[in-house]
């Protein structure tokens, strides 16, 4: 689902970023969004492997790149993102830099 169909155009706040990541991750992992929270560990709680994380990264870049030109997630930073909350913080910071 394109971002503009479920959120209004304009800067995304932290909660909207969390919802976006939760939706995309649920779709990729074929699990219910309600099972994903900020404290969820990608590997230990969600069984997300490296390819699943790359799927998430590409989905976020595609959606958020339309809103913030130049939005990109550095592959080198992925190792530091252990939980969903880490990813939310990271994306919020990158959006702020890109805008």
């Amino acid at each position: 689902m394109p971002a503009e169909t479920h959120v209004e155009r304009g800067p995304l706040d932290r909660q909207q970023v969390l919802e976006l990541i939760r939706e995309r991750l649920a779709d990729i992992l074929e699990i219910g969004p309600e099972t994903i929270n900020e404290g969820s560990s990608f590997t230990e709680d969600l069984d997300a492997d490296s390819l699943a994380l790359i799927e998430l990264v590409e989905a976020l870049e595609e959606e958020l790149g339309e809103r913030s030109v130049g939005f990109r997630i550095n592959d080198e930073d992925l190792e530091d993102l252990k939980t969903v909350g880490d990813a939310v913080d990271y994306v919020v910071a990158r959006l702020a830099q890109a805008s």
Partner: peptide, 8 residues
Amino acid sequence: DPAQGVRR
């Protein structure tokens, strides 16, 4: 690396 190879 498979995932990084595809991405880069």
